[in-house]
Write a protein that binds this DNA or RNA. Structure first.
Lengths: 189, 189
DNA sequence: ACCTGAACACCGTTCAAGT
DNA sequence: ACCTGAACACCGTTCAAGT
């Protein structure tokens, strides 16, 4: 009559997984560590996620959706496209600083099946492509969006990895890169 | 009098590790799989590398040195800096296509201690900074080099991850991105 | 001086048994 | 319907014993 009530949920498991990911890295996201955090034994997780790689994929998709939301919020105004792109690039960088390891998961080519869902990534890409079209016209939209996304991701990823060891003003390099790409693609419109 | 002669070497182990890395991914680089490839039992590896994370770091450093060589070769001529930068960006992209998983290791922020040596990365960065200085002057050299490296890395990483799903001409986006960054930073010189 | 088998702790996963 | 302990295969690592 009272079959065992759920003591956790898929959402709680994914959220716990994201915490562990940022604290201990991807290797630290074990079924044991996540189960401990939601106060359950490891085998119980299999009632909510298929296996560890499905859990990793769910964590990545969760992060992608949060990123999409941040980018939508930043790109919504009807400013000139250069401003929207700069503001989305900033939002991306802030997300990457909050969630560096999740950001790496979104782009850095995990094993097939362990990455975020394509829909969640497409949702994050849409506002960038829209602003790219406003900037560079229909033909230039996709290359412009790709270049800006690649730049923002590459930059923040190197930043998170501590790759900028030579001093200098890192913020300025980011600003100038975004500005250079914007004006470079705009000219071709 | 004839103590056991070495049946393998650190170099052979690192080379085997790089093969396994590209074939099966980072998770596939186990002490067991690498030992099998060099025809030795797992415990023997510990005579040549401290532990698995030191092996991963050695694989990353090996890849960084190969990348540095490719970039040095591409950036050597005394062409105008725009040409040198474009040619180094192409060399980077070719390396990333040959060794996609190693490339991800070089930039995508592994756990501390598992990344490539800083010297090997600095060696790869040097020719880019030099060309950046020729393009943008002493003050603009570092931002220009960082922006171009971030772009090239981000782009090839997304390419390897299959992130460019929307069709269109991917090569063209890469070319245009490099050109936009070059001219954007040159103008500020 | 390096290689090996045995051993240990740990993890992902399955499954029968609980409630 | 979900949770659990027990069990299995696998991996990283150590170490004493071989040559």
């Amino acid at each position: 009559m009272s079959p065992a009530r759920a003591r956790t949920s898929r959402a709680a498991i994914v959220a716990a997984g994201r915490e562990v990911l940022e604290e201990r890295g991807l290797d630290g996201v074990s079924m044991a560590s996540v189960a401990r955090r939601v106060a359950v034994r490891p085998p119980s997780l299999y009632k909510h996620v298929r296996d560890r790689s499905a859990l990793i994929a769910a964590i990545a998709t969760d992060a992608a959706n949060e990123l999409a939301q941040a980018i939508e919020a930043a790109g919504g105004a009807d400013d000139p496209p250069e401003h929207r792109l700069a503001s989305m690039a900033h939002a991306f960088r802030e997300f990457a600083r909050r969630s560096p390891r999740a950001t790496a998961m979104l782009f850095a080519g995990l094993e097939p099946g362990a990455g975020p869902s394509l829909e969640s990534l497409a949702r994050a890409a849409r506002p960038v492509v829209d602003a790219g079209e406003a900037l560079a016209g229909p033909a230039g939209a996709l290359p412009a969006a790709r270049a800006l996304t690649a730049f923002a991701y590459g930059f923040t990823s190197m930043e998170a990895a501590g790759a900028f060891q030579l001093g200098g003003n890192v913020n300025e390099a980011f600003e100038q890169g975004v500005a250079a790409l914007s004006s470079g693609f705009a000219r071709r419109a």
